[in-house]
Every structure is written in C-alpha cells, then in structure tokens.
Write a protein that binds this DNA or RNA. Structure first.
Length: 420
RNA sequence: GCGGACGUAGCUCAGUUGGUAGAGCACCUGGUUGUGGCCUAGGUGGUCGUGGGUUCGAUCCCCAUCGUUCGCCCCA
C-alpha cells in the first residue's frame, strides 16, 4: 500500500458488487421522472466560478470554502459544480428554454470539499428536478407528489416530510431584521456558532442543535407572522393539497435553507436512519434566481436528492437479482472452451436480450460450476469433450434440484429460452 | 474547519503486559458426490495504513501523516 495511489479523500469507487443497486435506483428514478413528463438535461461538471457565487450566495460555506476551483491559463476562475440548480438555470437562459415552461431533471456527480462523513462525501451524486416558468402552488405540490412516488417505487418507508414557507424576499428581509434584533438583544446567550451565524446566515440560528440555545430560539419571532397574504395563500394551498393527497407532513417554522436563492416553499424529506446526515431530499421555490442570473423573471421550483444517502436505505437484494445473468456457459477441455465462445456468440445472435456469461480461463467442472453459482445465473450450459464429440450440450438448472437436459448444439436456443 | 474513536490477510475480526502474527468467509488443489451447491483434507495469501522516534528489538509505546468513522459545523 505504501506507494500505491489511492482514491482521494471523500471520493469513492463504486465497485461491481455495488453497481447493481445504483443502476436499479437510477432506472427507477428515471422511470418516475419520465412518467411525469420531465426531461433530462445534462450540463458540464465545470462552470465559471461566478455562476455559483451569484446563485448559491457569496457568503455561504459552499462558495466560501467548499468549492474545488480549477485554474485555467489566463482565463476566469472555474469551479467543479457543487450543486446542479445553477447550471440548469444558466443553460435554460443561454439556450432560450424559458420561452415556455420547462420540467427538467438532471443527475450526476457534485463536488464539495467538506470533511467526509457517512452520507457526506466530496464527490457525491444527486438527482435533481427544476421546473421553470410555473408560478402556482400546484406545481410545488406536483414536485412533492413526485418525490413521494420515488419513495414508493424504491420501497422506502420511514421518511418524514417537513415543509415551511420563507415568504418572498421582502418578507424574508423584514423577518431577518427582526430576528437579528432579537438575537442581538440576547447576545450574551448565544454560543460561538450562533455568533458567527448572526453575521452570515441568521436564519440558521433557528436550526441550532445546542440545547442551551433553545430558550433564545423559542422566544424568537416567527417567520410565519411576517408572511404576506400572497405567500400565505400559496403555502396554504400546498398544505391543503398535501392533505388531499394523503401525504403526512409537519410544518417546521425553523426549516430554513443554506442556499440563498430559495423563497416561499421549502421542504425536506428526512430519515432517522442516517445519523447526522439525515436529509435525503430537499428543495423549494426560487422565483428570483433566473432573474438574478440575467434571465427574464421566471418562477421556479426544484429539489435535489442525495443518491449515496438513498442507497443506504435501499434493500439491495432485488437489484442484485435483476443484475444476474440468465445463463453461464461451463466448458471443460481445450476444444470445448474454444467452441464455447462461438456457441455463445451464436446464442447472442439468436437471443438479443440474453445475458450469458461464457466461462473463460479454464478450470475444472467443480470450479466452473462454483462460479456459475456465484454469478446468480438460473441455468448452466455444460460443454465437456464428450458432449462436444456428439454435437450435444447440457442445460442444467442451477439452484433447483432438477435433471440436466442434453440437447443438440444446433437446437440449443429454443431449449435455452424455455429453460430461463 | 473543530472535538472523539478506529486503521492487523480480498472481507469480518481475534491477538501480542514490546521478541516480526491467527480464525471464519473468500480464493486455489484434492477426496466424497449423478460434472456445481452439503461434508471433508490441504494450500496460496499480511514487511500488522504510511513515515519517523524511543528500544538490544515495535504490529503492540510516542510523534507526524494518510484514510475511515461518530458528533459539531454544513448540507443532498
């Protein structure tokens, strides 16, 4: 291990043993998104640093200390994307997508130079959705319904939904002032983190996990009291919709956001199974972002979910079973091995969807059968020198206790089709 | 970024009050078996994360470093 190069901190390989779950997750998620008419958008992993400064916010941790910046000779600063929304909006503006409403989704790796922990990695993967150009609360609701369907399809229980409204930017600004005043009045009761947050993101103080902070937090003014009629109506409509759809949720007035661009609706799906990194999916409305990035004012809602966190909640058995090959071709003896490759090719020609592993590299019947078992294949095709001499090949069900069937090599395909 | 824990074969771990290490699973070979699944005999495989220090001698002590992990911070 001494001089070996290893993957860098917080960035991990997904090994073949694990990839079936990833593929299963990605396939199912994609199927749901297509079922709602969302279309995939793929954007570069690298963007001009300024894009993230202007969208996420200059004073956020992400921008201040967690971005991977890359140098380009004589050019402007570039960064590995720490999230997906900014790129989507940039692309939508750049290519005139905003002429009509857009339901977009994306997936891929994101990069944040944080201290790694379970559920928090320096390269991690998100699937996200961005709906651009629809203002009403019905689309907020659709997006939440969509996420609930994810959990149904993925077999996840035990996720709870928390929602809140941040109001529009004016309401939020007024609240922020009131909150800062309150916090300053109790300055001596704040812990070090909260002192810092007072300057950077005062709303975050409400989120404090320090029990000593609870009195100050509890006596703070409530954001809800600062919402205007329009914001309230919007929020109430969503709550009513959730009720009708039978989605349990709790309104968490302290649910705020680390990213600057959110307004009105914010929501999070949370699990207790992952310790400190329990938020599996989070999103909300960001009606001012498009304009902020130079596009014409366009309402927007979206969310992102962390795939590593979801993977931890998924039972991998079904995925592993789906990933197994249909058949495993066992061939013992030099001539049989050489012939096996050709037989396998012929089968793949005749059965385009067949998943067939042809054993290579020799070995005894015993060792080859062992591998066939491991592969999860339903049947083994058995080709020994004696079978080969007679132009025959064996079809033997694995796992089940049934008899080997010996058929002519020329007539193998239909027999194999019947056996799997 | 802050504080704590951990780092021994591919995997899960045991162990040495300091004298260069073991088990189970996996892998390879053989026996038994109706050519694999059970059972059984044997074998390969580790400079005990890395670098330095203390010591006659360190995997076990000390320091540093890298990595993982728990909480904080942050967030998906």
């Amino acid at each position: 291990m001494a001089n070996n190069i290893q993957a860098i901190r917080g960035m991990h390989d997904i090994l073949p043993e694990r990839s079936p779950v990833w593929q299963w997750l990605e396939d199912r998620v994609r199927a749901v998104l297509e079922g709602y008419g969302y279309r995939e958008i793929r954007t570069p992993l690298v963007e001009v640093t300024d894009l993230f400064k202007r969208s996420i916010g200059e004073v956020t941790d992400i921008v201040e200390k967690e971005m991977y910046n890359v140098e380009e000779r004589g050019g402007e600063g570039l960064s590995l994307r720490p999230e997906g929304t900014a790129s989507c909006v940039r692309a939508a503006i750049e290519h005139g997508l905003l002429a009509q409403a857009q339901r977009l989704w994306y997936r891929g790796p994101m990069f944040r130079r944080e201290r790694p922990q379970r559920g928090r990695y320096r390269q991690f993967h998100q699937v996200g959705v961005e709906v651009l150009g629809i203002a009403g609360p019905d689309i907020d609701l659709e997006v939440i319904l969509l996420t609930r369907r994810f959990w149904q399809v993925l077999g996840l229980g035990e996720l709870r939904l928390e929602i809140n409204s941040l109001g529009d930017s004016h309401e939020r600004a007024r609240y922020r002032e009131a909150l800062v005043m309150h916090l300053q009045a109790h300055h001596d009761q704040l812990d070090a983190d909260s002192h810092r947050r007072l300057l950077t993101n005062p709303l975050r103080v409400l989120d404090s996990k320090n029990p000593d902070m609870q009195p100050v937090v509890a006596s703070a003014p409530s954001l809800r009291d600062f919402l205007g009629a329009a914001s309230r109506t919007h929020f109430d409509a969503i709550c009513a919709g959730l009720d009708e759809a039978g989605i349990a949720y709790s309104i968490n007035p302290r649910l705020v956001r680390g990213l600057d661009y959110y307004n009105r609706t914010v929501f999070e799906w949370i699990t207790d199974a992952l310790g400190a990194q329990g938020t599996v999916c989070a999103g909300g409305r960001y009606d001012t972002l498009v304009e902020q990035l130079g596009g014409r004012a366009t309402p927007a809602v979206g969310f992102a979910m962390g795939l590593e966190r979801l993977i931890e909640l998924i039972d991998a058995r079904e995925a592993d079973a789906l990933a197994a090959p249909d058949a495993y071709l066992v061939a013992v003896g030099e001539r049989a091995q050489a012939r096996a490759l050709l037989i396998a090719e012929d089968l793949r020609d005749r059965m385009p969807t067949l998943r067939l592993v042809c054993h290579c590299g020799g070995g005894s019947f015993k060792s080859q059968f062992k591998k066939a078992d491991r592969s999860g294949a339903r049947v083994a095709l058995v080709l020994g020198e004696d079978e080969l001499a007679r132009g025959m090949i064996g079809i033997k069900p694995l796992r089940a206790n049934s008899e080997q069937q010996v058929v002519s090599i020329d007539a193998l395909a239909p027999h194999l089709a019947a056996a799997i």
